[in-house]
Nucleic acid binder design. Structure first.
Length: 259
DNA sequence: AATCCCTACAACCGCCCTTAC
DNA sequence: CGTAAGGGCGGTTGTAGGGAT
């Protein structure tokens, strides 16, 4: 047995809301509140609308504290960051943005951000570091010896980003400390597949417990690495919040390390 | 000027979760 | 404890408006 519909779809009005309907709904809620029951609200307010439609109209459009359009770069970054961690949990993402609704964030993602981030970009310069150089861990570099090592190293980066996609597709229920451990284990796994490319990697050494290989650039010239911005974001997130940038070691044109 | 195409976003649909009884 | 109803949410659709042809 299916559930009873919340309203009679044949008789209630559907489609775009008129300014008059908006005014009726707004004034009713401002005067009486929602009454804790959206299903009965339209009848009380004198609207020939489904209760769910009223709820959506109020929450996504009529609420006084709503912002529409004009997403800032900071908001873009927050959305991207949370999407990587949480996936399409728009209501949670929207809760981190003052005045934004889940519908707004979802629409913005689907129409603009997704396309923007999926557009491949050519990386020809160092990735900006959010961490001051003085706070970066020590980086020791090992020059690569064989050009073929580069492609293998690049492959390993793609493998890493691929892993991280899967890793974040299911948000971890564990607290952050435990997730960091999970991440390290995942990275260690990926690192094992990268062993054959050791000569094209360098070591990131934070002076205590952690050492990681990463990728490097060609000694013969800049190596244009095709990655979407999203992949870079994933990689950054996978390897840690304190993304740090290594100095370009001798014999290497560019190298970036994250921890 | 007319038509087509694309983009943005409002609104709906349907499912799942929560809660009251 | 089971069931029904309401709320919440993500996915999808419809459509208006603007730009391109």
């Amino acid at each position: 047995m299916g559930r009873a519909p919340c309203c009679d779809k044949a008789t209630v009005k559907r489609g775009p809301w008129s300014p008059e309907e908006d005014a009726v709904l707004r004034s009713h809620i401002e005067e009486y509140g929602t009454g804790g029951n959206w299903i009965t609200l339209p009848k009380k307010a004198g609207l020939n609308r489904c209760g769910k439609s009223c709820r959506l109209r109020w929450l996504n459009y009529l609420r006084p504290d709503i912002k529409h359009g004009g997403f800032t770069e900071e908001e873009d970054n927050i959305i991207c960051s949370l999407y990587r961690k949480l996936g399409s949990r728009w209501s949670v993402i929207a809760s981190h943005l003052r005045g934004r609704t889940d519908n707004d964030v979802k629409n913005y993602w689907n129409t603009k951000l997704k396309k923007k981030l999926m557009t491949p970009t050519i990386i020809t310069s160092n990735i900006p570091s959010p961490t001051p150089a003085s706070l970066l861990p020590t980086v020791k570099a090992e020059p690569y010896n064989n050009p073929s090592d580069i492609s293998r190293s690049v492959d390993s980066i793609f493998a890493l980003t691929q892993d991280s996609h899967e890793f974040y597709s299911e948000p971890s229920p564990l607290p952050r400390e435990c997730r960091a451990k999970e991440t390290r284990q995942l990275h260690r796994h990926s690192r094992a597949e990268e062993v054959s490319a050791t000569s094209s990697t360098f070591t990131v050494d934070d002076g205590s417990r952690n050492s990681y290989g990463n990728w490097s650039a060609s000694g013969a010239g800049p190596y244009d690495l095709f990655l979407s911005e999203l992949d870079i974001e994933y990689l950054t997130d996978l390897l840690g919040d304190d993304g740090c940038q290594a100095e370009v070691p001798q014999g290497l044109h560019r190298s970036v390390a994250y921890w």
